[in-house]
Design a protein around this nucleic acid. Structure first.
Length: 271
DNA sequence: AGTGCGGCCTGTCCGC
DNA sequence: TGCGGACAGGCCGCAC
């Protein structure tokens, strides 16, 4: 479900409610996520104060004075600000109760998400330390993509979805960015010249920024911290539009499979 | 080293 | 109406 814009939308939504707030309690109803929620999480967190909510790739980092809660939403996770009395829905696995009377509620039907705890630098955590540059940060560029793709035969779509190359580019936005830059998703990454990578990097930045500005994309079930959907869906040019006319040339869009993921593209605009 | 899969889970939708 | 199968926004870990 959530890609980088949806995670960033969540971060912006929850931070004002929990920043500076003391954690009074943590209720774990089901610890079976991708990795089990550590047993010490409730006792370790009780009494700590959330200093800030930051993001690295699709990981949310709730920083406290003595450690960091690492949250990943996986395919179906969401975080919402509720009152602790709000009725529970299925798959509401965790509540963090704050001193201001609000609760941060973690829901994840498919349980591909994660909630972990580290007292060390979270960026050095095994899950985060090999991540490539942030696509909206200064270290990401067309030159970076060009340099790291030399000699590689992997399809460019899989290449930009590799989190060691650039972090946080998921399936929807990979499809969109390749359309925007006119690159065929199956083209081998090593056979794309620098000017096209400059365009692709621009497209990745643009599509992610714009989606964040619109509160992310809601296809099926993404909801923000307040339960609202994201509005970027109406801007999607190719994703989930099989057979519909290309917005540029009106040819029907195609759907193929790459790495067990859906790829949508225009066969005449993308080469 | 780079590449391509299988697998983790539940919910939903589609065709029969 | 019921049922099986395919599919879904992520990503680790393994075999080659």
């Amino acid at each position: 479900m959530p890609e980088l814009p949806e995670v960033e939308t969540t971060r912006r939504g929850i931070e004002p409610h929990i920043r500076g707030q003391r954690i009074d309690d943590v209720i774990v109803r089901d610890r079976r996520l991708r990795w089990p929620i550590p047993r010490q999480i409730p006792s370790a967190l009780r009494g700590l104060t959330v200093q800030s909510v930051s993001r690295r790739a699709k990981y949310l980092l709730l920083d406290t004075e003595s450690g960091t809660i690492i949250v990943h939403l996986g395919m179906s996770g969401s975080l919402r600000i509720v009152t602790p009395q709000a009725p529970l829905r299925p798959h509401d696995h965790v509540d963090m109760i704050f001193a201001n009377g609000k609760a941060l509620r973690f829901r994840d039907p498919r349980r591909f998400g994660a909630m972990l705890w580290t007292r060390d630098d979270p960026l050095e955590h095994e899950l985060l330390k090999h991540l490539g540059p942030e696509p909206l940060g200064n270290a990401f560029s067309g030159e970076h993509l060009h340099e790291h793709s030399r000699g590689r035969r992997v399809a460019v779509k899989d290449f930009i979805m590799n989190s060691r190359v650039v972090s946080g580019v998921g399936n929807i936005y990979a499809n969109e960015a390749l359309f925007m830059s006119g690159i065929h998703p199956r083209r081998p990454a090593g056979r794309i010249a620098l000017p096209r990578y400059l365009q692709l990097a621009d497209a990745i930045r643009d599509v992610l920024s714009k989606a964040i500005g619109m509160g992310g994309t809601t296809l099926r079930d993404f909801t923000r911290e307040n339960g609202e959907p994201g509005y970027f869906r109406i801007e999607l040019a190719v994703y989930d539009r099989k057979g519909e006319p290309c917005k540029r040339c009106a040819q029907p869009l195609r759907l193929i499979t790459q790495g067990q993921r859906a790829t949508y593209y225009c066969a005449s605009c993308q080469r």
